[in-house]
Design a protein around this nucleic acid. Structure first.
Length: 823
RNA sequence: GCCCGGGUGGCGGAACGGUAGACGCGCUGGACUUAAAAUCCUGUGCCCAAUAGGGCGUGUGGGUUCGAUUCCCACCCCGGGCACCA
C-alpha cells in the first residue's frame, strides 16, 4: 500500500484511455486463451454493417455487452467476445453507382474508420479474430456452405413470382418485406415479378423451428418467430371434380374448420391456380381471363387498401361435396392466395367473415351449421365464428362443434375424402440478389449438363474487381463477360456462370461459428474448436432481427447439423434484446438533425463516461433517451471516483478508531459487492451504477469521520474499482496501477463477499397503524415479538393513533414491519 | 382486429406484496471566486402548516389483502409486432 499523494492530479480521460488501449493491445491482454481450463463463455454482439460510422446506437449495443462479457471473465469464465464487420450489401454498391467509388474501397475505408471508433470504446475485442464478410477468405466458405446445402437438397432454383424492389433492383425474401409491402432497406413498395431464383428450404425445418425449448430467449421473439412460421392444423378436404374429365378427379381445399364443412356453399380458387383454365366453361373464359389479368395488374397500393372488397368470378363449373352430395359452384377470387395451403378454399359464409362478404356480394347461400347458444333460426348479419352446436350437419347434429371437429376429420379420413394436414405460413428463404456486392452463387449453367456446382477446388468464385456500375441498376456481373463465360466443369464446353449473389443474411447466418477459428483455411470452422466454444452462450442485439437474421441463423445451424458439420441444435442459447437509444423523444435520424455523435462526447468526457452514461440511462432492454445534461452527472461521478481513490490514505493511520464504524464499512462493502454482482449478472447496469454511486457517497461521508482502519478503507476502494472495471475499463486500470497493484486489473477476479458479514445488527422497524406508516424504530433482529409489541404500543406517535380505539390484531413481519389494526 | 411490452415527481428512472420516488438530471439556497465556469454543502412528489404534524399521491374504475406501483377483473392512452394465412 503505497502513499498516493503523487497522483493527486486531475482526471484526464483522453491521455489515460489512449495509453491503456495501446498497452492492452501491445500486451495482448484480450487475447483469447484456447487452452484455458476455465469454463468457456461465448458472448456475442450482432456485428455492425459497414455503414461508415459507429453511431450512438452501436455504442448502446456494444458497450453494455462488453461490460457483461468482462464481468463474466471476472467471475471465472474463459470469455470469447469477438467483433467483425457485415461488409457486403447494397449501400456500398449504390455509392459506387452514384459516386464512382468502388464498393470495395468504399467498404474498406468505412471499416477503417469504424475500427478506429470501435477501438475508442475500449472493448475487450481480440482484433486478431476480426472477420470481414466481404473478404474472399470469408465468402469462400459462404460458397462452400451453399454447395453443401445444394448437395443436401436444401438449396434449389425456382422460377416463381417474387418480391421485387424496383429501387434496389433486386428480389427480396418474404422476411425482408415489411408492413405495407415495403422493402426492408429502402421502404419502397415492392412489386411481384417472375424471376429465376435461388432459395433455401427453410420450410423443411418449420416444425423444428417452432421448438424453443433449448433456448432462453425473450418470449416476445419466440412469439414473433412462431407467428411468422404460422403453423395451423386442419384438414385437406377433396371436392369431387370427376365430372370435368380432368387428369385429377378432386380439387383439394385446406381448412382449419372442418366442423363447418356441411355449410360449404361455394369454392374459391386463387386466380393463379393451375386448374383455373381447365375448370372455366367456354362462356366464362373471357370474364375469368379479364379477372386474372386485373388481379395480376393490380397495383400493390390497391391491394393494400384495408377495407378491400372481396371480389371474384364464377367459372361456370361445379364440384361435389362428397359429404353431402351437393353440387357447389367454383369461383376464382383474389382473396385466396395461391401460395398458401392448396390455393383453394371452401366457402362457408355462415362461419367465416370473408366468405360471408363474398356470399353477400354474389348472392350465394348462407347455411348455418354451427348454432349460437340462443339461436332461433334467424339469418346472420355477419359470420358466426365462435363455438356452438352442430346443426344441418347430418349425423353430427347436436354435437359441440369442438368435439365434432375431430370426429368429422376422422370420418373424412375413413371415407377417403381427405386427410388431416398441417400448413405453415413461412416460405422458403429466397437468397438470390441481382446485385454485385455480395457472395457470388457458385453455380455454372451448362446447356448440356444443366445446373453444375462449382467444384470445391475452384472456390472461391471471386467477385471481379473491375466491374462496371451503371445507373440502370443492371447487375454488373451480368455485363462482365470474363466472369460469365466459363467452361463447364463437367463437360468442358462453354457455359455461363450464375450472376446472382447471395442475400447478405447468408453471411450472418453462420458468422458466429467463424469467429471460433477466424483464420482456419480448411473449412468454415475448426471442428475441434467449435466443440469447445460453440454454440454462443449469450447473444445480444436488437429485436428487429427476430424473423430475419435470428430465424435464418437457427435454420443454418439445424441444416449444418443434419449435413454433419456441427453437432448442436441452436446457434444462440441466450438472447438479450437491448432497446433503442432516442434523442428528443424521437428516433435519431439525419433528417431530424437529432443524431448524437459519440466521438464528440468521447473527446469531451472520455469513453468510460460515455459507456457508463449509456448504461445508466435506464434498463438496457428498454432503451432510453440521450441527454447532453444527463451525461454531465456521470462525468461528475467519474471525477468523484477519481478523487476518492486519489486521497492520501495515510491520513487514516493513528487516529481515533471506532470498531463500530469499521464494522459498518465492512458490512457496507460486502452488501455492495453482492448487489452489484447480482445486477451485473442480469444486465441491470443502471441499478449497478446506482449502487456504486451510493457506495461512493457513503464512502465520502465515512472518509470525513476518519475513524476506520486503513486496510478496511483500501479494501472498500479496491472493491469499488474492481466492480467498476467491467463498466469503465480505462479509469479503473489507471486507478489499479496508482493503488500500487500489478497490471492488469482486467485479469482480476470480481470481489467476493461473505454472507456472514452482510447482516445488520440493528434494523429499522416500520410501524404502521391500519396500514399507514406512523413511526419507525431501531431494533435488534433478536428482539422478540412480545417485547416489540410493548415498545410499539408505548410509542407516543403510535398512541396518538391507537388511543381510544380497539386493537383488532397486529401483524409482525420479522425484521421489517409491524402493523396494528385498530377500529 | 389480434399478440407482446409499457404508463410512477419538472425530467431519466428505483422499489422479494411491507417506509413509493433509490441513483442521476434539473431547480432552491449557501460556500469558494473580483466575477463566471467548475467544484463542494443544503433542500427538493403535491397541498395545508413556521416547525411538529396532517391530507393526497404510481393512467382510470372496481376487487383480493392487515397492507397493492407490485396480484385479479374491466377500461383508457403510448410503443412494438402481426394482419385476407382459409
Amino acid at each position: 500500500m503505497t502513499s498516493l499523494s503523487s497522483f493527486d492530479q486531475k482526471y484526464t480521460p483522453g491521455n489515460i484511455e489512449s495509453k491503456w488501449q495501446k498497452k492492452w493491445s501491445k500486451d495482448l491482454v484480450y487475447k483469447v486463451d484456447e487452452n484455458s481450463d476455465r469454463k468457456k463463455w461465448y458472448e456475442l454482439t450482432m456485428f455492425p454493417y459497414t455503414s461508415g460510422d459507429i453511431h450512438i446506437g452501436h455504442w448502446y449495443a456494444m458497450a453494455p455487452s462488453d461490460a457483461h462479457a468482462r464481468f463474466m471473465n471476472m467471475i471465472g469464465f474463459n470469455v470469447l467476445h469477438p467483433m467483425g464487420f457485415d461488409a457486403f450489401g447494397l449501400p456500398a454498391e449504390n455509392a459506387a453507382i452514384k459516386g464512382g467509388k468502388h464498393p470495395k474501397s468504399y467498404t474498406e475505408s468505412n471499416m477503417h474508420n469504424m475500427r478506429r471508433q470501435l477501438k475508442s470504446m475500449g472493448n475487450m475485442y481480440d482484433w486478431d479474430r476480426e472477420i470481414v464478410t466481404c473478404s474472399p477468405e470469408y465468402y469462400k466458405w459462404n460458397q462452400w456452405l451453399f454447395l453443401q446445402l445444394y448437395e443436401a437438397g436444401l438449396a434449389y432454383r425456382d422460377f416463381a413470382p417474387v418480391n421485387w424492389c424496383p429501387s434496389c433492383n433486386t428480389s427480396l425474401a418474404n422476411e425482408q418485406v415489411l408492413d405495407e409491402n415495403r422493402c426492408e432497406r429502402c421502404e419502397t413498395i415492392v412489386a411481384r415479378k417472375n424471376v429465376n431464383q435461388w432459395l433455401f428450404r427453410i420450410t423443411k425445418y418449420a416444425e423444428e423451428l417452432l421448438d424453443f425449448s433449448k433456448l432462453q430467449w425473450p418470449e416476445k421473439i419466440n412469439i414473433m418467430q412462431s407467428n411468422w412460421i404460422g403453423r395451423s392444423t386442419g384438414v385437406e378436404f377433396n371436392f369431387d371434380i370427376s365430372e370435368h374429365n380432368l387428369p385429377q378427379e378432386t380439387l383439394t381445399t385446406f381448412t382449419t374448420r372442418i366442423d363447418t364443412v356441411f355449410g360449404v356453399t361455394f369454392i374459391v380458387m386463387a386466380p393463379e391456380h393451375h386448374l383455373v383454365k381447365s375448370l372455366t366453361i367456354q362462356e366464362k373464359i373471357e370474364e375469368v381471363e379479364r379477372y386474372i389479368e386485373h388481379s395480376s395488374n393490380q397495383s400493390e397500393l390497391e391491394r393494400l387498401s384495408t377495407e378491400k372488397e372481396k371480389t371474384g368470378v364464377f367459372t361456370g363449373s361445379y364440384c361435389i361435396n362428397s359429404l353431402t352430395g351437393e353440387r357447389v359452384p367454383i369461383f376464382i377470387g383474389d382473396y385466396v392466395l395461391a401460395s398458401y395451403g392448396t390455393g383453394v378454399v371452401m366457402g362457408v359464409p355462415a362461419h367465416d367473415q370473408r366468405d360471408f362478404e363474398f356470399a353477400k356480394k354474389y348472392d350465394l347461400n348462407v347455411r348455418v351449421v354451427i348454432a349460437p347458444d340462443d339461436w332461433e333460426g334467424q339469418d346472420f348479419t355477419e359470420a358466426f365464428v365462435e363455438n356452438g352446436k352442430q346443426v344441418n350437419s347430418g349425423k353430427f347434429d347436436g354435437m359441440k362443434n369442438v368435439d365434432a371437429m375431430e370426429q368429422i376429420a376422422n370420418f373424412v379420413e375413413d371415407e377417403g375424402l381427405g386427410n388431416k394436414a398441417t400448413q405453415y405460413r413461412i416460405r422458403d428463404w429466397l437468397i438470390s440478389r441481382q446485385r454485385y456486392w455480395g457472395t457470388p452463387i457458385p453455380i455454372i449453367h451448362c446447356n448440356i449438363c444443366g445446373t453444375v456446382p462449382v467444384p470445391e477446388k475452384d472456390l472461391p468464385v471471386l467477385l471481379p474487381d473491375d466491374a462496371e456500375f451503371r445507373p440502370t441498376g443492371e447487375s454488373p456481373l451480368k455485363l462482365k463477360e470474363s466472369f460469365v463465360n466459363v467452361d463447364c466443369p463437367n463437360c468442358g464446353k462453354s457455359a455461363s456462370r450464375e450472376t446472382d449473389t447471395m442475400d447478405t443474411f447468408v453471411d450472418s447466418s453462420w458468422y458466429q461459428f467463424r469467429f471460433i477459428s477466424p483464420n482456419f483455411s480448411d473449412a468454415p470452422f475448426d471442428k475441434n474448436l467449435l466443440d469447445i466454444w460453440g454454440p454462443v452462450d449469450q447473444y445480444t442485439g436488437g429485436a428487429e432481427h427476430a424473423v430475419m437474421h435470428l430465424l435464418y441463423a437457427r435454420f443454418f445451424t439445424k441444416a449444418l447439423r443434419d449435413i454433419g458439420i456441427l453437432n448442436f441444435d441452436e446457434p444462440f442459447i441466450r438472447l438479450f434484446n437491448q432497446g433503442h437509444i432516442i434523442s428528443g423523444a424521437h428516433k435519431m435520424s439525419k433528417s431530424r438533425g437529432n443524431v448524437v455523435a459519440p466521438d464528440e462526447f468521447v473527446e469531451k468526457y472520455g469513453a468510460d463516461t460515455v459507456r457508463c452514461y449509456l448504461m445508466f440511462i435506464g434498463p438496457w432492454s428498454q432503451g432510453g433517451e440521450w441527454s447532453d445534461d444527463g451525461i454531465k452527472g456521470m462525468w461528475r461521478w467519474m471525477n468523484r471516483v477519481w478523487n476518492i481513490t486519489s486521497r492520501d490514505f495515510s491520513k487514516l493511520d493513528n487516529i481515533n478508531l471506532s470498531d463500530e464504524s469499521d464494522m459498518k464499512l465492512v458490512r457496507l462493502t460486502n452488501q455492495t459487492i453482492k448487489s452489484v454482482y447480482e445486477d451485473l449478472k442480469k444486465f441491470k447496469f443502471n441499478t449497478s451504477l446506482a449502487i456504486l454511486m451510493q457506495f461512493t457517497n457513503d464512502l465520502n461521508a465515512i472518509w470525513e469521520m476518519k475513524n476506520i482502519k486503513r486496510e478496511t478503507w483500501v479494501k472498500a476502494i479496491e472493491s469499488l474499482i474492481l466492480m467498476l472495471s467491467p463498466l469503465a475499463p480505462h479509469i479503473t486500470e489507471e486507478m489499479w496501477q496508482k493503488l500500487g497493484n500489478n497490471f492488469s486489473i482486467h485479469g482480476q477476479k470480481f470481489p467476493s463477499w461473505d454472507e456472514d458479514l452482510l447482516k445488520e445488527d440493528l434494523i429499522t422497524l416500520v410501524i404502521q397503524v391500519n396500514g399507514r406508516v406512523r413511526d419507525t424504530m431501531e431494533i435488534s433482529l433478536e428482539t422478540d415479538e412480545s417485547e416489540i409489541n410493548q415498545l410499539v404500543l408505548n410509542s407516543t406517535k403510535i398512541k396518538k393513533h391507537t388511543d381510544g380505539k380497539k386493537i383488532l390484531k397486529t401483524i409482525y413481519i420479522k425484521g421489517k414491519l409491524i402493523n396494528i389494526v385498530v377500529r
